[in-house]
Design a protein around this nucleic acid. Structure first.
Length: 287
DNA sequence: CGATTTTGACCGGCGC
DNA sequence: GCGCCGGTCAAAATCG
């Protein structure tokens, strides 16, 4: 059964308390969301943007995007170029609307819950409410989600979290399957989906749902929950309350038929430079 | 042998 | 109401 849904106690990560970790938010924004380039206008000193986030986060993929680009250095010759193209969220009326760079249409595939498009932010469920709802058999309520695209030949991007695959589905109009993972931590409800863009097979689309309630593993000092790059941790500061921070997953994509056999994944784990999200580059830097 | 992956079945939501 | 589709389940298979 779905133990994470049934057995896990409510996780303790109220948004307010979660956004108080270490790093300087301003730096985060400068580093990751260079608004001057992206036009997001997401200055920390502008709390209204957070409200906007809160409104859009529960349903993303589609109309607009948060075009941030990160890139993994090619330190390892055997590792291929990895460009994290853009974290994206769906915004019905979000702040990032008319900006260029819109993510490829492939992300519309990321939107199974059309119903949420009409939902209000009140529908953003806490893990516990989601559990309750599910137990009742009531309408499923989705956690906030965050998607980003990574230009990479490999799929297993290390993020310090452990994931267990629980499903795979063929994607409509795409030769590539979509894989479903959930965090192996018993108290963590985070899920993610990994798929390749049919438009650009070199691009991996990763979607995170939920928020890690535990520290990452496999990284020095046990990184707190957050977005990890090869340069270090992008803390939750980066994400406003109500937003799912994207823990770019240790994407153990193990589609033996289409992506990688488990052996290759193991090999990648042994090669720290493989699959780490990394350098931020400017839009247009994608090749 | 435990953990993880594979994979077909199942379920619920939505559009027609 | 029916069919499609996304998402999940769970037994079997596989891996380390």
């Amino acid at each position: 059964m779905d133990e994470s849904d049934k057995l896990d106690p409510p996780t303790d990560f109220s948004p307010e308390s979660s956004w108080t970790l270490g790093a300087d938010p301003a730096n985060m924004y400068n580093t990751f969301f260079p608004d001057s380039d992206f036009g997001w206008n997401l200055h920390p000193e502008n709390p209204h943007n957070f409200a906007d986030f809160d409104r859009i986060d529960h349903n993303f993929a589609g109309s607009s995007t948060f075009p941030a680009i990160t890139r993994v250095p090619h330190e390892n010759p055997s590792s291929n170029n990895i460009d994290t193209v853009l974290p994206e969220m769906e915004a019905q009326s979000g702040p990032a609307a008319d900006n260029n760079q819109s993510v490829s249409s492939s992300t519309s595939e990321d939107l199974p819950e059309k119903s949420t498009a009409s939902a209000s932010s009140a529908d953003i469920a806490t893990p516990e409410t989601a559990i309750k709802e599910k137990k009742k058999g009531a309408k499923r309520i989705r956690q906030p989600r965050f998607a980003f695209m990574t230009k990479s030949d490999i799929d297993n991007l290390e993020d310090g979290y452990r994931w267990r695959k629980y499903g795979q589905k063929a994607v409509k109009n795409s030769p590539f399957p979509r894989s479903y993972y959930r965090c192996t931590n018993g108290k963590c409800l985070v899920k993610k989906r990994v798929e390749r863009s049919s438009d650009d097979p070199s691009t991996v689309i990763t979607t995170y749902e939920g928020q890690h309630s535990h520290h990452a593993i496999g990284f020095p000092r046990g990184s707190p929950p957050g977005f990890i790059t090869h340069q270090g941790l992008i803390s939750q500061h980066f994400y406003p309350p109500g937003i799912q921070f994207p823990a770019p997953g240790r994407q153990q994509v193990s589609n033996s038929r289409l992506i990688q056999p488990r052996q290759l994944i193991s090999a990648a784990r042994e090669s720290p430079t493989d699959g780490l999200l990394g350098d931020i580059v400017h839009p247009g830097g994608r090749t």
